[in-house]
Design a protein around this nucleic acid. Structure first.
Length: 423
RNA sequence: GUGCCUGUAGCUCAACGGCAGAGCGUCGCCCUGUGGAGGCGAAUGUUGUGGGUUCGAAACCCAUCAGGCACCCCA
């Protein structure tokens, strides 16, 4: 027991069981993305800090990034998000891409945060974006992709809801209240915090920001008005499109959704689990009109969202929506009867692999009891045994570990026998 | 970056400042050609780490690391 070196704070180790969960999420993410025709891509895992300085939230860049000096003295950052990399990649080939660009990605990200339930410092994130189309209908498509994912993992609309708002609508409402554009950021923060603060404290906080009582009352009216979307042509079209796309039951308008990232300009949305213990966003995104110009490209509008694997994984686990963990891909275990039969077992396994089966051989002669116990724990469905009796007749004992039935078949009939057992 | 809580066997947790334990799991046997159930038995600890107080510390104090909860922020 020499080594007591711990893992880096906020990182996770993926034992086969956790890897199974990660791959499950990845498969569902890929399926939802591909169902809408999106292409998979990825960016570098390390970037210069300048890439994020342009438009990511100040908190994200200054406090939550893993930034360090490389051996050449340059400041590099483990990517905390993908959107700026995407914007640069698009800008670099802006003239030669076929629009609209529909891209998705699933990879690792790092944020220097206090780890807690649903939050780690190293996590995987699904990013999916459409660029080159600026319409509420395009926004609706992205929301539909998110809803498709939720549906595919078994989260029904009672369990998970996507809340939608529109920054332009809110800005015009703020204007009507006489809130100057310079204060929009502060007011956005204020709105973000409303559910987390005592009402009285929130009022005080609002007045401290410089709102007068009339503006505060007006703001409360707006935030309590769940029909406000009817005033917005964009949101009206968005909801019509969502209905046509067959995901309307997953989506609700909520004027309290603002989102912290600076680059959102129109539609914004966040999915929450409605019943569980975890009050964190499953996914979040929106429309960004100016991001590309900020990294040196021609103006190009985009819409997209991100989903972290940590929150999604916990929710699926708590909801009991994960499939049973299969420890090994092997469908067949070949036992080793004794030392004299050892190589016979190897030959048998090799033959079966040639026939396309996934086959594990017990690594040594041991009591058959022990070998069957092993097969049981690994949830292997079929165990094969070649003992002296079988070998003498060119036969193999085939045991179905699910039903407990065992038959002895000729070796040339073995593959067909296994095939019928696997189904 | 802030506040609070926690850290004991592989896991879940006990143990008043006085001999470090239980359940589950693991391994062995019951069972010399066959898993799941049952019975019997066994192994396993620098009590996160480092200091301090004390005759005596898993327990009290300090530091540190990690986890959790709430802020902050967000996937």
């Amino acid at each position: 027991m020499a080594s007591k070196i711990q893992t880096v704070k906020g990182t996770r180790e993926f034992y086969p069981e956790q890897m199974f969960l990660r791959n499950f999420i990845y498969e569902k993410v890929r399926a939802a993305s591909q169902a809408f025709g999106y292409q998979e891509y990825d960016g570098p895992f390390i970037e210069t800090i300048d890439l994020y300085a342009a438009k990511s939230g100040e908190e994200l860049v200054k406090k939550q990034s893993f930034t360090f000096e490389d051996r050449g003295g340059d400041l590099v950052t483990l990517r905390p998000e993908l959107t700026p990399s995407l914007a640069r990649m698009i800008a670099a080939k802006q003239g030669e891409l076929t629009y609209p660009v529909r891209w998705w990605s699933f990879g690792p990200f790092w944020r220097y945060e206090q780890p807690q339930k649903g939050r780690s410092r190293e996590f995987f994130q699904w990013n999916i974006d459409m660029l080159g189309v600026n319409s509420p209908e395009a926004d609706a498509e992205l929301i539909a992709v998110g809803a498709t994912f939720l549906r595919s993992v078994g989260l029904d609309p009672q369990r998970a809801t996507i809340y939608v708002n529109n920054r332009r609508l809110m800005d015009s409402e703020f204007d009507l209240l006489g809130i100057v554009p310079e204060k929009r950021m502060d007011v956005s923060n204020l709105v973000d915090r409303r559910t987390k603060m005592e009402p009285a404290k929130w009022d005080t906080y609002a007045l401290d920001l410089g709102l007068d009582q009339k503006q505060l009352d007006g703001l409360k009216d707006i935030l309590g008005n769940f029909d406000l979307w009817k005033k917005s042509d964009e949101l009206t079209r968005l909801f019509a499109a969502l209905e046509a796309l067959g995901v309307k039951e997953y989506v609700k308008f909520d004027p309290n959704i603002m989102r912290g990232l600076l680059y959102y300009t129109g539609t914004v949305f966040e999915a929450f689990e409605t019943s569980g213990s975890l009050k964190r966003a499953i996914l979040g995104g929106g429309r960004y009109d100016n991001l590309l110009a900020d990294v040196g490209g021609q103006p190009l509008s985009g819409v997209g969202f991100a989903m972290g694997d940590v929150v999604a994984g916990i929710i699926l686990q708590e909801a009991g929506l994960l499939p049973e963990f299969i420890p090994t891909p092997a469908a067949v275990l070949v036992t080793v009867f004794d030392e004299s039969m050892w190589l016979k077992s190897f030959e048998l396994a090799a033959q079966l692999r040639n026939d396309g089966f996934k086959v594990m051989v017990f690594p040594e002669p041991a009591k058959l009891q022990k070998q069957f116990k092993f097969a049981d724990k690994m949830k292997i469905k079929i165990a094969l045994t070649v003992g002296p009796d079988e070998a003498a007749n060119d036969q193999v004992a085939v045991k179905n570990l699910v039903t407990g039935e065992q038959v002895t078949v000729k070796r040339e009939a073995l593959s067909d026998q296994i095939r019928t057992l696997i189904g």
